[in-house]
Nucleic acid binder design. Structure first.
Lengths: 82, 82
DNA sequence: CCTTAATATTACCGATCAGGAATATTGGGA
DNA sequence: TCCCAATATTCCTGATCGGTAATATTAAGG
């Protein structure tokens, strides 16, 4: 048994939005639920999940964490070689 | 010889800002240089690197990529077990 | 020290965010 | 199909973004 890490490169707001939506649903949360928990408006969540590229970074990171997504910065070229 | 992957968890704009600044310098670029290349104002770069949490997501991702930083979304709990 | 490039700060401004609330639209189930 | 919850869209508004340009501050060498 081996679990491959689900690492998704995020190179656009769209991509991140998709991930966040999937994660939220996996938690069984509705946009309105999550909005209340996170203290943001439902409109913001809707836009975030659809990949609006001008959403605020801080809010985005908070939402991501809330739905169980951690973000990682990986310098390109730092190949994993153990 | 073994290269450990430089994976930096990013859970705040400050953290990401620090990474971006380090990466920019590693490229030998000045804020003004990078600003021109990226087509943004120097002010934005300054604020981004200092962790302003309301910077725009799209611009942030673009800048990160330009300095050689890829962002990854990893669902918490997806332990890497091969 | 002293100088000078690099970075930060401020002011001004047009553009746009994000909240709230109401309404439309969509999409899955039964 | 029908229906109802979920999501999207629109309007209004105060707050704030980010560009530009000018000025201050910082940092590293020489």
């Amino acid at each position: 048994m081996s679990a491959v890490p689900r690492q998704h490169k995020v190179d656009s707001p769209e991509e991140l939005g998709r991930r966040i939506r999937a994660a939220r649903k996996a938690q069984g949360l509705t946009q309105v639920d999550l909005a209340e928990i996170a203290g943001v408006g439902p409109r913001f969540l809707s836009e975030l999940e659809r990949g609006k590229d001008t959403v605020r970074l801080g809010l985005t990171i908070r939402i991501a964490r809330l739905v169980g997504i951690d973000l990682f910065a990986i310098p390109r070229g730092s190949e994993t070689r153990l």
